[in-house]
Amino acid sequence: MLELRLVQGSILKKVLEAIKDLVNDANFDCSATGFSLQAMDSSHVALVALLLRSEGFEHYRCDRNLSMGMSLTNMAKMLKCAGNDDIVTIKADDGSDTITFMFESPTQDKIADFEMKLMDIDSEHLGIPEAEYEAIVRMPSSEFARICKDLGTIGDTVVISVTKEGVKFSTRGDIGTANIVCRQNTSIDKPEEATIIEMQEPVTLTFALRYMNSFAKATPLATQVTISLSSELPVVVEYKIAEMGYVRYYLAPKIEE
């Protein structure tokens, strides 16, 4: 028996919008720790890891570990039917091939339940090693989204380069080139607008912009994004979900052959 009640149901709506374009079908894992997912995109270039900790739910009952295969497209369709202020409850019975999403309006005058078919998904689970990153950039998520969108109109790849001068995003396309430099800015009065760069070593890596633009769909989840870089390692783009967990995207770099 599984029953997870989330008063701020809009978080789940935003999570689905943040991952559904990258991954079509995925197994959601439910344990005492929380509600989580790890999945790769179909070309195995990017990986998304989601964690919603059990403490973040108003009610969390998960009698035994469960892995539930879901079409993210269909789950997003169902969650779109929930109001932004609705309380969302996820329910599943042991051995059932369906999951139920219950939506309650804040005044309790409207209650809806949507039952969705589960599916069998063969998925590979990868071990993500703990790594010390050479550079960690924290910046406003909206700024990062804007940069990826703008550069995507000019080129296909972005070169991210962190030096003591700041973080530089560069692209090159048929029409020309573009460079955007963001300097450290530790605005004390507005921490959500700060750009903080922690650098052990200068690092330069190249990535496909298409994936970065897909990750930026998580922007409504967090005001800040953290980009962790090390040479010859996948970049980690993390959006923290207040008091609940995170959505982390890992993207394999383009490597010179």
Partner: peptide, 14 residues
């Protein structure tokens, strides 16, 4: 020339 690498070449299956 830059070649796209895959996540599976950095992280191993568990």
């Amino acid at each position: 020339v830059n070649q796209q690498s895959q996540i599976t070449s950095f992280f191993s299956k568990t």
